[in-house]
Amino acid sequence: MMIDYFVLATSVSSFLTSPYNYWAPFAFASAAAVIALLAIIMMFSSFTGRERMRVWAKVKIYDVIFSIMLIFVFFVIIALFTSINFKTQVFGPLNLTPSDCSGPSAVVSGGDIMSLAVCDMYTFNQNVINLNTAIFLIGLRMSFAPQIGIGYTNFFGIQGVGVDTKISPSAPGFETFTGYLLDALYTAFVISQLQLIILAAALLMFSVLMLIGIVARIFVITRSFGGSLIALAIGTGIIYPLLVCITYGYINVGMAKTGLSLTGAGAIAFIGGITGALFTLLLGGLGVPGLSSLLAQFLQFAGYAGMGLVLVPLLNLLIVDVFVIDFSSAVGERMDFMSLLANMI
């Protein structure tokens, strides 16, 4: 699964690393042609004494020059983003790069912001999946709790006269709670997985939308459309991954710090330990070593997961939406993509 994301994230990298080979010549040639055309209109309007047309052509020439400037700004942004290793130079010193995303064994090797964001999101989702699996297995194991029947039916020496009862050694009410918890976690996980898919396409969206946007912004009639695409490209391609690196980086590092391992032998030990403790909670749970620390680890891990599943997506999407709306208003047509998305859904 990760390989698919990785391929998607890097397959368009040539757009990003060598934009001048693909579209910059076309963009500059188009700009030159449009400026030439507008200059002719300006001269013609001067000869014919049509002042309004002359002012209009002058403003449009300024707009094209501004678009050319945007192309250069785009080059600077590309140079900046391809020269910085966000893993080691930016988020590493802040302790926001999880161990799964740093070093030679990282699931995504690139140090650019998009790769790091994909890695952060992927790591978080894996943690949530592991948590869900652990909760499911804990609930499943708890359902295997044997019920013990005890009784005495030989009172007064008469067979068949007496009393019996049944004792369930599992913690009462826990199965119901794990059911609710699983429902909530799996529902919220859909949003998280959706974020990963969007992030995996961040590089693609940035490259393609920026390409179309800058070229479209050169032409007079497609200027506002181009501006909106540029806003969407920067919002989804840079701002959103940046926010994911900060927020999910912190959450992933925090999850790792809890010391709870939910994969391999660690998961087996945890599930075994906690179910064993819960089985015997009422029958001497104090004797199970480390029960309180297991529960504390579990609560801390689940707390981070809850934060990343509920609050953080809202916060990130809100900021990206605000950026796209205001930025698109500044450079093109106002675009409220979250409202559009909500209306479509």
Binding site: L282, G285, L286, L291, S292, S293, A296, L299
Partner: peptide, 13 residues
């Protein structure tokens, strides 16, 4: 028996 199970948990948190 389980009257003080939670003490360690609270301390950890």
């Amino acid at each position: 028996l389980p009257s003080s199970v939670h003490a360690g948990l609270l301390s950890s948190l």
